[in-house]
Design a protein around this nucleic acid. Structure first.
Lengths: 120, 120
DNA sequence: TACAAGTATGAAGTATGGTATATACTTCAT
DNA sequence: ATGAAGTATATACCATACTTCATACTTGTA
């Protein structure tokens, strides 16, 4: 698919997609058979990749962190153990973020009680 | 306390504290009795406020969102119901972030299985 | 075939959340 | 009373994550 469809499929704007591609998060391929243009083609796997990027961003990871994760993910020079380690580290970070969020949630819940008592 | 102590108590750098104060997240008071300087005094409640800011930032909220929350929190013109509503909305946002994080976590866990199978 | 719409590329601009720097005044320890 | 350290203010600078703009080429449609 072309970038316009990719944008519609993922809900990510075209400039942002180009920014991501330029950043190295994924790569579309110019069709070798077509010599008249260098329009790039993006396949289904890139839709998935972008959904993953969106999720990771929502989760508070930077593009740089996401890139590192993707790089080790798809890097065949890394051993399986090494890849697993990278991903496990990311999972630990996520767990810590979830704990932090639960903390803030607790604070806010307590705050509601305080507000209702008129203490705020 | 002065800004130096505030910085030490909260672990937030002095430039960042000044940036926050300027942003309107809190406000120190210049001692009226002392005419020779305009050093600002920060009390315990500001330490608490900054801890809250740190937590909210960790949780992925922007300074602008945090400011809105603080403003409604300490705004006496808002009814109790209105304040509770604002905080409850924030709690919903946090719940949604937690769900998002759990999603990404699941994706990564699945990825580990895929890597171990050699599919990555 | 003409022209609107789509695509690629590079460069500049924007918003956020800071940090660094310069200047000037104040306080504190000796 | 003097020098080091602390405080206030303003401005400049920086990184990140985009968005906008300018330019130029390509494609599809009437």
């Amino acid at each position: 698919m072309l970038i316009n469809e990719l944008s519609k499929r993922t809900g990510v704007s075209i400039p942002t997609l180009r920014y991501y591609e330029n950043y190295g998060l994924f790569k579309g391929v110019s069709d070798e058979k077509v010599k008249t243009n260098n329009y790039k083609d993006y396949d289904e796997s890139i839709v998935e990749k972008i959904e993953m990027i969106k999720g990771a961003k929502e989760a508070g990871f930077t593009l740089s962190e996401i890139k590192k994760l993707i790089d080790s993910w798809y890097n065949n020079r890394l051993s399986i153990d090494k890849k697993v380690e990278v991903v496990k580290n990311k999972i630990n970070e996520i767990d810590s973020k979830i704990r932090q969020l639960k903390n803030v949630r607790k604070l806010l819940s307590e705050c509601i009680v305080a507000i209702e008592k008129g203490d705020c």
